[in-house]
């Protein structure tokens, strides 16, 4: 879900951390929580307010895998590909998802910004393998057909949202 960056909201987030340069990561996390990514337009005001260069903020954002500079979808799939999930066949689940969403090999987000598909190295729920999360809700013991059903449900939900 991508939205226009609100200067007021950004001000509030930075203000909540007392404009502190040592809180850059926390501020970025708050921005990402709100927008699901770090909008480029946030860099200049953030750099100015906390007194850290834009290049240094870019350095932080690109260092951590968790921060994204690309807009993310309304639903974010995190498919676990840790050892336990991998041996219990997480790859076909991932392939099914990417195929049904028609994602090209270098794409993670659908063009309509509805879905993002990422892999994570371990969700810490190996007993539920293969596991995935959608916007932090956990779906255990997945199979390719279960993921197709889940996707259909989410698409249904989206059609209600837009109406």
């Amino acid at each position: 879900m991508s939205q226009e960056l609100s200067a007021q909201l950004l001000d509030e987030i930075i203000g909540a951390h007392q404009n502190s340069p040592s809180a850059v990561i926390a501020i970025l996390q708050d921005i990402q929580e709100r927008y699901h990514y770090i909008p480029k337009a946030a860099f200049a005001p953030l750099a100015h307010r906390v007194g850290v260069s834009e290049a240094s903020i870019y350095s932080v954002v690109t260092f951590y895998e968790n921060f994204s500079l690309e807009p993310k979808g309304r639903f974010i799939f995190k498919v676990c590909d840790g050892t336990a999930c991998h041996v219990r066949k997480s790859t076909p689940i991932l392939e099914r998802l990417r195929k049904e969403l028609s994602l090209a090999s270098d794409e993670v987000t659908t063009a309509d910004l509805n879905f993002t598909v990422e892999t994570v190295s371990c969700l810490g729920a190996c007993g539920l393998a293969p596991v995935l999360t959608v916007n932090d809700k956990v779906y255990p013991a997945m199979t390719p057909s279960k993921v197709s059903t889940l996707l259909a449900e989410l698409k249904e939900e989206l059609s209600h949202e837009t109406n």
Binding site: K40, F43, V52, S53, E54, A55, S56, I57, Y58, S59, T62, F63, L69
Partner: peptide, 27 residues
């Protein structure tokens, strides 16, 4: 001046301006 910093990490790490802008467009 803060025009450059490290971007990315590990084998992809490099010295970069913000958003890898050309130096002439950076600070």
């Amino acid at each position: 001046v803060g025009a450059i910093d490290f971007a990315n990490r590990g084998s992809k790490m490099r010295v970069s301006t913000s958003f890898d802008a050309p130096i002439s467009e950076s600070s």
